[in-house]
C-alpha cells in the first residue's frame, strides 16, 4: 500500500486534517474518511455533478479531484450550506418547490446553484440551465429545479 499523506484543509469553515492515499479522490475522502456523506457518487467520471463541492469558491466534481491536491484549500460541501441550523433559501425552495424526487442529484444542484447565485444574484432561466448543465437529474425533468432556484434568488434579493 502507498504511504498515506497528511493533508490540512478548511472544510465548511473548520480546519480539517486527514490522511489519504494519493489515489483517493476528494469524494472518497469526504464520504469514507470524514463521514461527510452528503456529497453523492453518481457517475464517478465528471458527467453528473452529484459530487459537486466548492473548491476555493468554484464548483468542481469532487470525484475528479485527488484529495492530496486540496492541501491548503477551502472546501464547501452540502453540509456547509445551511447556516446556524437554518436551511439556506435554496434548500428551503427545493423543499417547497418539490425540486427533488430520489434526491441523489440534489446536493450537487444546491452547491452548484449557490456558486451561481453568489456570482449572479438574478440569473435568467437560460443562465441557470447553462451554468447547471454539469448537473444531471433523472427524475424531475429540471423545470422544478430551475423554478426553485429562481424563487431562492428572489428571496435572497428581497432579503438584502
Amino acid at each position: 500500500m502507498t504511504k498515506k499523506t497528511h493533508v490540512t484543509t478548511t472544510i465548511n469553515g473548520e480546519e480539517t486534517e486527514f490522511l489519504c492515499e494519493p489515489r483517493q479522490s476528494l469524494l472518497e475522502v469526504l464520504r469514507e474518511v470524514l463521514d461527510l456523506t452528503g456529497s453523492k457518487e453518481g457517475c464517478n467520471n465528471g458527467n453528473c455533478g452529484a459530487c459537486t463541492v466548492l473548491l476555493d469558491g468554484l464548483p468542481v466534481d469532487s470525484c475528479l479531484v485527488l484529495a492530496v491536491e486540496t492541501e491548503g484549500a477551502e472546501i464547501t460541501t452540502i453540509e456547509g450550506i445551511a447556516q446556524q441550523g437554518h436551511l439556506h433559501p435554496l434548500q428551503q425552495c427545493f423543499l417547497e418547490g418539490a425540486a427533488l424526487q430520489c434526491g441523489i442529484c440534489t446536493p450537487g444542484f444546491i452547491v452548484g446553484a449557490k456558486a451561481l447565485l453568489d456570482r449572479n444574484p438574478d440569473p435568467t432561466e437560460e443562465e441557470i440551465r447553462f451554468n447547471l448543465a454539469g448537473n444531471l437529474c433523472r427524475c424531475t425533468g429540471y423545470d422544478k429545479i430551475v423554478r426553485s432556484i429562481q424563487e431562492a434568488a428572489d428571496r435572497l434579493q428581497s432579503a438584502t
Binding site: M1, T2, T5, E21, P22, R23, Q24, S25, L27, E28, R31, E32, E41, N44, C63, L66, V68, E69
Partner: peptide, 13 residues
C-alpha cells in the same frame, strides 16, 4: 468502498 477507486500511484507536486 462502494466507489470505483483508482489503482495506487505516488504523487508529487
Amino acid at each position: 468502498g462502494g466507489l470505483t477507486t483508482l489503482s495506487g500511484f505516488e504523487y508529487v507536486a
